[in-house]
């Protein structure tokens, strides 16, 4: 059995809010293998971001174990954790988090600045990363000269530039319209196909449908963890979507076998796992 990328057990995270203690995570176990594409879902406040921040080594759990690529992270110092973030993790934020006064290339090169791996050719690597997300013609644009989708592509290029073993995205399409969201999720699918391990947070079922596996959280606990194709909630969603589109397709075709594209795609990715 190969080493999993992520192996967490008994993760809790508690926040003190004055007198009372809020349990954002209340015992989460999760194992994610190489080249998995996982969607984390759940209602607002269910602990998705908290979990992602811990997976991304941006935050530490209150208790529990987190083994990343075989390395325990609990005992690491702040500096060592920073290096883990730099080497192993690419993080994509809902709000992009680009340096507003820097060009796309400079933004993408940011992780390389703190990298021990790549000394030379930082600009070249940054340009290549930008090309790979389809922004070869936007190298020297500043964030305010780019659309939301383009900004998120820059952020994705930045997350990938250091060749991380794990790509984490917390609601990467949360600030984008549905057409742009489709483009961004297609980019993730593409990356997954090229071997990238990906965990994304989303609360949109159709976005989650692109993943292989859906982990659902409620009140800081994992309540379900299924391959996308067999996830009951997702199947329910697809069925209702199919009915809706069938109705929309017109009464003439009632009972026809038109299947929504999502399901076929989900089945395809699910099958390749």
């Amino acid at each position: 059995m190969p080493t999993p990328v992520i192996e967490i057990s008994g993760i809790t995270k508690a926040y003190k809010m004055g007198e009372e203690v809020v349990g954002a995570l209340r015992g989460v176990d999760l194992r994610i293998d190489r080249n998995e594409f996982v969607a984390v879902m759940g209602a607002s406040g269910s602990g998705k971001s908290t979990l992602m921040n811990i997976l991304g080594c941006l935050d530490r759990p209150t208790s529990g174990r987190y083994i990343l690529n075989g390395q325990a992270t609990e005992k690491l110092s702040a500096g060592a954790l920073a290096q883990v973030r730099n080497k192993e993790i690419g993080f994509v934020f809902q709000t992009f988090e680009l340096l507003p006064r820097s060009t796309a290339v400079v933004n993408v090169a940011l992780p390389l600045v703190y990298s021990r791996k790549f000394w030379w050719g930082t600009a070249r690597r940054a340009r290549e990363a930008l090309k790979s997300v389809g922004l070869g013609d936007r190298m020297t644009h500043r964030p305010n000269q780019l659309s939301g989708g383009q900004r998120q592509r820059v952020a994705i290029a930045r997350a990938l530039v250091n060749e991380p073993s794990l790509l984490l995205a917390d609601e990467p399409t949360g600030n984008l319209d549905s057409k742009t969201s489709e483009e961004i999720i297609a980019l993730f699918r593409d990356l997954h196909q090229r071997g990238q391990t990906i965990v994304i947070v989303t609360h949109e079922e159709d976005i989650a449908g692109h993943a292989q596996r859906i982990v659902r959280l409620r009140d800081g606990k994992v309540v379900s963890d299924f391959p996308t194709a067999t996830d009951p909630v997702h199947r329910d969603f697809l069925d209702r979507a199919a009915q809706a589109s069938a109705r929309a397709a017109g009464q003439a075709a009632v009972g026809s076998e038109s299947r929504p594209t999502h399901e076929s795609r989900a089945a395809q990715t699910g099958g390749s796992a």
């Binding site: 920073a82 973030r85 080497k87 993080f91 988090e97 340096l99 992780p111 703190y114 990298s115």
Partner: peptide, 16 residues
Amino acid sequence: TREIGLRKAMGARPSI
């Protein structure tokens, strides 16, 4: 502060 947070998220160690 946000920029510092971002730099740290991207792997900048405290010493840096």
